[in-house]
Amino acid sequence: MPGHDYIELTGGPLDGQLLDVTGLTPDERTAGAYLITPHNTHGPRGRASYGPTFTRPDGPWV
């Protein structure tokens, strides 16, 4: 969507999906996020932790 910033998620159950980070502050972007996974992946209320790497802070989250 025009005017939005997206980060690609790599590895884990959400591999290949894009996360809209438009409203996140710079501190929130460096902290990463715990994201809800599909029910069949890790059971009910499953979470996956994604965040930037030190070598590519503006690159995909792993």
Rank of each mutant, 00 (worst) to 15 (best):
G43D: 01
E28C: 02
T25R: 05
G23P: 01
H42C: 06
G23K: 12
G3K: 00
H4C: 09
P52W: 07
D5S: 06
P2C: 08
T25N: 03
Y34T: 12
I7Q: 10
T22K: 10
G11W: 00
R29L: 15
L24K: 15
D20Y: 07
P44Q: 13
T55A: 08
A31C: 05
G59N: 04
A33E: 03
G51M: 10
P26C: 04
Q17Y: 12
R45H: 14
P57A: 05
L14G: 03
L18S: 05
A48I: 08
E8H: 05
T10K: 11
T41A: 15
A31D: 11
N40E: 13
T55W: 10
P26R: 00
P26N: 11
G3R: 00
R47G: 04
L24V: 00
L35S: 12
R29T: 06
H42Q: 15
A31R: 15
I36V: 10
H39Y: 12
E28I: 08
P13T: 01
D5V: 04
Y34I: 09
G32N: 07
E28Y: 12
R47F: 12
R45N: 13
G43Q: 04
A33S: 08
E8K: 14
R45Y: 10
G43P: 06
P38F: 09
H4M: 09
T55I: 15
L14A: 01
G12P: 06
G32V: 07
T53L: 11
R45S: 11
H4W: 00
L18H: 07
L14Q: 00
P38R: 14
G46L: 07
I36H: 14
P60W: 03
L18G: 04
P2E: 13
Y6V: 11
I7H: 06
P26D: 13
M1A: 11
G51H: 11
M1F: 08
G43R: 01
E28A: 15
